Simulated assay, not measured.
Amino acid sequence: MSLDGKCAFITGAASGIGQGVAVRTAARGAHVVCADIQDASVTVKMIQEAGGSAEPVLIDVSSAQDWTEAVSAVVGRTGRLDLLANVAGITPGASGSAGDTVLNLDEATWSRVLDINLKSVWLGMKAVIPHMREAGVGRIVNTSSISALRGMPGMAAYAASKGGIQALTQQAAAEYAADGILVNAIAPGMILTPVKLSNVDIFQEVAAEKHLVPRLGEATEVGDVVVFLFDEATFMTGQVLPVDGGWTARG
C-alpha cells in the first residue's frame, strides 16, 4: 500500500486512536496533519523520527470557524487535501461513570458529547469535501463505535453520537460518490488508549470476556484498517467496519 504524495487530515491525533491512525497513515507515505485541541507535537515527532512527514494543527473540532481556517491553511500550504479521518471524540462513561444514562444525563453533557463527537464529523466533511470535489477524488473515514451497534449501559449520549455518525456516513457516501469521494466508518471495540490506562487490569478483564480475540486492541491496529479504507478499498463506500476483536460476532 502507498499513500505517497497524499495529504491526510486526522483529528484527535495527539493520542489514542487518532495517534495510531496518524502514525500508520504517515508510514504509508502521506503527509499527515495531526489535528487536535491538545498539542500533537509528540505524534508529529514520532512520525518524523520514523522518516515520515507531519505537522501539528490546533483545532476545536466542534467549531465551524476552526475547521474553515485549519483546512484553508493546509490547502494553502500543500495545495491539496486527499484524506480525512474524523477520530476526535469524548467518552463520558469510559471511567465507569454512571452519568451517561438516559435518566442521569444533563442537557449540557448531552450537548457537549453530540457537539464534539457528531457535529464535528459533519463540520469536518463540510470543510474538506469541496476540495475533494474539485480534485475529483477523496477518502473519508469517520469513527463510530460498537456502542452504536449494541446496547451498552452507561453510554447513552456517546452511543447516540456514534449512531449518528453511522447514519451521516451513509448519507455522505450516497451524496458524494459521483464526485469520486468514498466515505466509510470504523467501529472500534475496546482499544488500549490513555483514557483506559488508569484501569488496565479491569479493562483487560472485560476485553477477555467480550472479545473473541482476548485482549484490548492497539491504536495502530485501528490505524491499519483506516489506511486500508484510505488506499485499497476502492469499491467500498457507506460501510461501517467493526474493529473489535470479534466482539460483535458473538451471540
Rank of each mutant, 00 (worst) to 15 (best):
G52V: 03
T193A: 04
A156W: 05
I165C: 00
I116Y: 03
S72H: 10
G164I: 12
T109C: 10
I165R: 00
G124C: 05
V87W: 09
A174M: 11
T169G: 01
L84G: 02
L216D: 01
R28L: 11
P194M: 10
A159L: 09
S63H: 03
V225C: 10
S111K: 15
G180W: 08
R24A: 13
T68L: 11
E55L: 05
A85S: 13
E134F: 10
S15E: 09
E107Q: 04
V128N: 07
L123Q: 11
G151T: 08
G163N: 10
A160Y: 02
A173W: 01
G251D: 14
G99E: 14
E175C: 06
I140L: 14
G89S: 08
E107K: 13
Y158K: 04
L168R: 03
D39G: 09
N184V: 12
N86S: 08
H31S: 03
D224W: 11
A249L: 12
S198K: 10
G79E: 12
H211A: 06
Q170F: 13
Y158T: 00
G99S: 09
L197H: 15
E134M: 13
L123K: 04
S62H: 11
A108I: 08
Q239K: 15
S111H: 15
A148W: 01
D66C: 07
A233D: 08
Q166P: 02
G151N: 08
H211K: 06
V42W: 14
R133G: 13
I37T: 13
I37M: 08
A187W: 03
I140Y: 08
L3R: 01
F228A: 12
T248H: 06
S145I: 01
I90D: 01
L192G: 14
S120F: 06
A233I: 06
D106Y: 13
L149G: 04
I10C: 09
E134R: 14
G79R: 13
V44C: 05
T169A: 09
S161E: 06
G163Y: 07
D4C: 04
H131K: 02
A26R: 00
L84N: 01
A94V: 13
G52T: 03
I10N: 05
A173H: 06
A30L: 10
R112L: 13
I129C: 02
